[in-house]
């Protein structure tokens, strides 16, 4: 699915009555199946951008173009599961998945043993896995992820990234992942957009030229250094 977005200005009114501009001239489009990482210092409007794209926030100047029929799968910063429904029910409620797809998602995210548990009985890592599974259960055309692996230990996060990538590639979902971890962005995305500190503007829009599978260690380090220096400038 293609995504076309142009935000001229997005501002919030603070409690004291002042207007605070969070996004300014942010425009880009994503091709079908593209995996784009959105990087930037905290408070630069990354989450706001996701909320605008998902339709949760319509109070902005600009436009978002999505195909008329589309399904969005979203992973929020917190899992946002229904505590009173079991893991299986949480997944099935949103899903239009067939039994086969459902089983496949459950296996990929290693949730088979936890289907009958309630979210309150799960660790945070597990709950995040359920939230990711739920986003896939809707068979999304557009997948929006808001720092899905934050506060997880490194090895678990790495494994989840692999599982996520496998699912995204299989489904060919257009994916936008918000993160502040440069390595995560490089390992997942084939395109990286760097936002400046608030008000967020696009500082850089890099397509990782080499296909991800062929990305060499040296190349990855070089890209990482480039982006880190950009981000250092951004927050200074």
């Amino acid at each position: 699915m293609e995504l076309d977005i142009s935000i001229v200005r997005k501002a919030f009114r603070t409690a004291s009555g002042q207007t605070r501009v969070v996004l300014h001239d942010v425009a880009f489009s994503l091709r079908k199946g593209e995996i784009c990482a959105l990087l930037g210092p905290s408070g630069c409007g990354k989450t706001t951008l996701l909320r605008i794209i998902s339709g949760l926030d319509s109070d902005f100047e600009g436009w978002v173009r999505l195909p008329s029929r589309h399904r969005i799968g979203m992973v929020f910063q917190e899992p946002r599961l229904l505590p009173w429904r079991s893991v299986a029910q949480n997944l099935r409620l949103v899903g239009s998945s067939s039994e086969n797809d459902f089983a496949e998602i459950v296996v990929a995210l290693r949730l088979s043993k936890h289907l009958d548990h309630f979210p309150g009985e799960l660790s945070l890592g597990l709950a995040r896995r359920v939230a990711i599974a739920r986003a896939f259960a809707v068979k999304p055309d557009l997948l929006l992820l808001d720092e899905p692996f934050v506060s997880l230990d490194a090895s678990l996060a790495a494994r989840l990234r692999e599982e996520l990538l496998a699912l995204v590639l299989k489904r060919a979902a257009t994916t936008l992942i918000v993160t502040h971890d440069v390595e995560e962005a490089i390992s997942l995305a084939d395109r990286i957009i760097v936002l400046s500190a608030a008000p967020g503007r696009i500082l850089a829009d890099r397509t990782i030229e080499a296909p991800r599978e062929a990305l060499t260690e040296a190349r990855a380090i070089k890209i990482k250094e480039e982006i880190q220096s950009l981000m250092a400038n951004a927050s200074s």
Partner: peptide, 18 residues
């Protein structure tokens, strides 16, 4: 949770019940 229901486009009945 309300936002979750909106993004995932849950039908009204499902949203009320669950």
């Amino acid at each position: 949770l309300d936002e979750m229901a909106r993004v995932f486009n849950l039908p009204l009945g499902t949203k009320v019940r669950h």
